[in-house]
Nucleic acid binder design. Structure first.
Length: 407
RNA sequence: GGCGGGAUACCGAAGCGGUCAAACGGGACUGGCUGUAAACCAGUUGGCUAUGCCUUCGUAGGUUCGAAUCCUACUCCCGCCA
């Protein structure tokens, strides 16, 4: 450590501070009381060569949510410091079906599905990542995996022991619970590890659920006497319920596709106690500079997130909409408008027609529950009729509002 | 290949001949309260031209005055043994 110039150590430490924000674990390469990331940065500065940072993405589910963007956010931080982001599309691996579904074997996807998924995935991922060519090197693992012969594959397998593979928590559980594991699933971590060999990357990023797979890459690099990658894992983000991990099936997610108002509202609905985590993992705002009042902080968080996935104006509009709608309980500007040309006048049919309820029965229930208002007046009568030529604001609950004109 | 267990509404799970549109929990929705689409409290949660009527308990038949509940066949899941 003594023969390294002071300014390099200082710069490495500065970058390290930025990059280690919110990380779960930094694995491998620890030395002299400093972690592997620090030493990778020192090496990079000494050689004046940017670090190559791998992040594997599976185009199995095309729609990504904020949970997925946690790692992307870290990757972006690397880009902002001049390092090279190497997003890797597992086009080859997901043709095979991977085991990360915890207990179920995933069905393999067709070529077209993968291409379509990858495309939408990119559109969404690049709302976080920079497209600057100097800091981006996008790869597909079919590039090298399809070149492997069966003999190559066998040799590769010889470099990993069975004990090592099945120590992975997921496999252990499945063995214990008599859930079937197919041979090909055992190869999955090896393939993913081989990606790191082929890409010669310095660092691999992943969620904590990917720790095992990422470390396999490090192992295979070590076997080949390569300079092995270090692994940085990010925690899995809690969903809007504040308890479970964010996931589509739990319906506690904020999708990067969500409309501005929706996105802002969902952010406002997260419990206060996980707000700091959102700031830490999704933004670069220093945690000691947050507004004191939790509501102000949450609004700030909402703006930052809406801004990232939409634009600045949308963020402000979403906030204003939220404030009129929920804080002041008033009807906001910019309501969606609709003209009813069909021959409808009964309130039940109209509510169903505009999509505020699934059936007349549901609409009837909503009226009974005082959820329906016309021009701010609660409607208690389910036989209420609209007049033709009438224009009015129809509210169902606090979220669904529309300006209607009857032809 | 042999032997057992199971399939119930959005999900999990009771029910095992009538009082079942189907307990209970979760979720979702609505209302109250609130800085909040948080928490908490209360209500709703198959459909309809609605104090009644129609459809639903894996699929198709059958027994019965009457079936989610009994019988038969089929489909699919799961466990144990080989």
């Amino acid at each position: 450590m003594n023969d390294i110039p002071q300014h390099i150590l200082a710069e490495a430490q500065r970058q390290h501070d930025i990059l280690s924000r919110g990380t779960a674990e930094i694995l491998g390469g620890e030395k002299d009381g400093k972690d592997g990331l620090f030493w990778k940065l020192v090496k990079s500065l000494q050689n004046e060569t940017p670090l190559k940072v791998k992040f594997g993405m599976d185009p199995t589910a095309p729609d990504i949510h904020l949970g997925h963007t946690v790692v992307l956010t870290l990757l972006r931080r690397f880009q902002d410091l001049g390092h090279v982001a190497m997003p890797l599309i597992g086009d080859y691996t997901c043709r095979i079906g991977d085991p990360s579904g915890r207990n179920k074997t995933r069905p393999p996807l067709t070529g077209e599905e993968i291409d379509a998924n990858a495309k939408t995935y990119f559109e969404q991922a690049f709302k976080v990542l920079s497209k600057d060519e100097k800091t981006l090197d996008l790869r597909y693992n079919g590039e090298w995996l399809k070149e492997l012969s069966f003999a190559d594959t066998i040799k590769l397998c010889a470099q990993v022991t069975v004990a090592r593979i099945i120590e992975r928590e997921d496999f252990t559980n499945r063995l214990q619970n008599n859930v079937p594991i197919s041979m090909h699933e055992l190869l999955y971590p090896i393939m993913q590890g081989y990606d790191s060999v082929a890409m010669e990357c310095d660092i691999e990023l992943g969620g904590t659920d990917q720790t095992f797979n990422c470390l396999m890459g490090r192992h295979l690099m070590q076997v080949r006497q390569m300079n092995p990658q270090i692994v940085i894992t990010m925690p899995l983000l809690e969903g809007t319920d504040g308890v479970e991990k964010m996931s589509k099936s739990k319906n506690n997610y904020i999708g990067v596709h969500d409309e501005p108002n929706d996105m802002f509202g969902k952010v406002m609905s997260i419990p206060d106690n996980i707000m700091n985590r959102y700031f830490e993992l999704l933004t670069d705002v220093p945690l000691d500079s947050l507004p004191e009042h939790p509501m102000d902080a949450k609004k700030m968080l909402g703006r930052i997130i809406v801004e990232r996935f939409h634009h600045t104006d949308a963020a402000q509009e979403a906030q204003t909409d939220f404030e009129t709608r929920f804080s002041q309980r008033e009807v906001p500007q910019n309501l969606p408008e609709k003209t009813i040309t069909e021959n409808l006048s009964g309130i039940l049919e109209v509510i169903v027609h505009v999509g505020f309820a699934e059936s007349n029965s549901k609409a009837r229930q909503l009226i009974k529950q005082n959820a329906v208002k016309v021009d701010g007046t609660t409607i208690n009568d389910h036989t209420h009729e609209f007049q033709s030529g009438q224009t009015c604001v129809l509210q169902v609950g606090r979220r669904q509002m529309m300006r209607l004109t009857f032809a």
